[in-house]
Write a protein that binds this DNA or RNA. Structure first.
Lengths: 235, 235
DNA sequence: TAATTTAACTTGTACGTACAAGTATCTTTT
DNA sequence: AAAAGATACTTGTACGTACAAGTTAAATTA
């Protein structure tokens, strides 16, 4: 047996969640049903579920079952405070540059590997607004080689991560970030509708994924005046 | 049985680790020894160890045992890039204000509970430097009521968290943070030796602890020019 | 009808057993 | 002396059983 039994079950359940077969807020089959279905004991079923729990795919409720959770977008990342709260109200994402193949830029937020730099580069730019106020300008780069047809793909719910997960079954496995306070240059100031020289926050990001050698590099230029960046961490 | 058996074992092991009874890099008693010592089965022993593993107190090695890890300081927090790398070299912490009892300030980084505000407040200020360059100015507030004799306590290795853990057996269980890019005012500029108006990063923090209703509130004023703030997250 | 009890589910804890597989040491063989 | 094997530990996986405890809905009782 190359793979352990519990990780087989874990993988089956995970991919079904990712593909929406078990939708958000629905319940997974109960532990006893899993036992019968896959001819395993509850110990094994619970170990698979524990893994899903630990990774945030489900939440368990004593006496009820395992409910599929909205996949966390955060992963220890920073999120724009007020963005999620304002959802449904007035949040807009404007594509300044749709995904297209281009050369890698001279400087990335973090150094890329040589093998990555040999592949074509896909890049896109987005402006995130609350109402009429542009708040964040985001530039993303990634290796296009590994995502077939990505340039012509529409984002699911406008979310890049959701698209990665559901369409390509790729998960974010880690991130590295760096924060700097800068003065806005002419271009950024114009986009964010602030004075040139006003203080902005630049977040440099590098995401690792479940696909080897596929990373996502991003710059976020944030006007934190009205919408500070925040995150929470719970043990 | 009010407490579960495995969490009893977990607590015993955890406090022994925290008190240094099981030192860093040493091995915990093997699962079988734990079974014999506490009259439990391996299932229960493993569950307690799993918890310690999940919380980063130990790492397990197939065939060898459970080794006590250096307790992570990060907890998903941001750390100053270059600080840890520069450790042993030239990092200094200057107390601008030693811990003392005072009134709660009018504005905290995050709102405190009423019951907290009824207790005395302990506050202290530190300046973190690399060589001669001041990089971060930090102000901390916490409820003094719950930490007996804290005002007169020296920090273990200069670390506030380490002191909390080892002297008071209090762990950080969560954090909330908010980031803003600001222009340095006169006071901050003087302390950080930069021009007034230069862009700085202000991190507002609220830590939750294992002690109910004890939170730590902080402002970090960071000159990110040479030492950007960073963190990494691994799945 | 309304309140209570029962029954049938669910997950949580804890017991016990067996063997696989990694690590280290001691013993035997070459 | 060096290599190979046996042995005694360790953790990892997986089996099975039993009961506690939370949830829900149907059945019973007042």
């Amino acid at each position: 047996m190359r793979q352990t039994r519990y990780s087989q079950i874990y993988n089956i359940l995970k991919s079904r969640i990712q593909q929406g077969q078990y939708g958000v807020d629905s319940f997974l089959p109960s532990e006893n049903v899993l036992c019968a279905t896959y001819s395993i004991t509850r110990t094994t079923a619970r170990k698979a579920l524990d893994e899903l729990l630990r990774e945030g795919f489900i939440e368990k409720q004593h006496g009820k079952g395992s409910r599929v959770k909205e996949r966390r977008q955060t992963l220890g990342l920073l999120t724009v405070k007020g963005f999620s709260e304002a959802v449904g109200e007035n949040v807009k994402t404007i594509f300044l540059q749709k995904p297209r193949v281009q050369l890698w830029p001279e400087e990335l937020p973090f150094p890329a590997s040589d093998s990555e730099l040999k592949t074509p580069c896909i890049s896109f730019e987005r402006l995130r607004c609350v109402g009429d106020s542009p708040v964040v300008m985001e530039i993303d780069w990634l290796s296009g080689m590994r995502l077939k047809g990505f340039e012509n793909t529409d984002f699911i719910d406008g979310s890049f991560f959701k698209t990665l997960s559901q369409k390509y079954l790729i998960e974010i496995t880690g991130s590295e970030q760096e924060l700097r306070a800068l003065n806005a240059d002419e271009k950024i100031a114009a986009l964010l509708k602030i004075e040139p020289g006003a203080p902005i926050l630049r977040i440099s990001l590098k995401f690792s994924t479940s696909k080897p050698d596929l990373h996502i590099y991003s710059y976020l230029y944030c006007n934190t005046e009205n919408y500070p960046i925040g995150n929470t961490y719970k043990h």
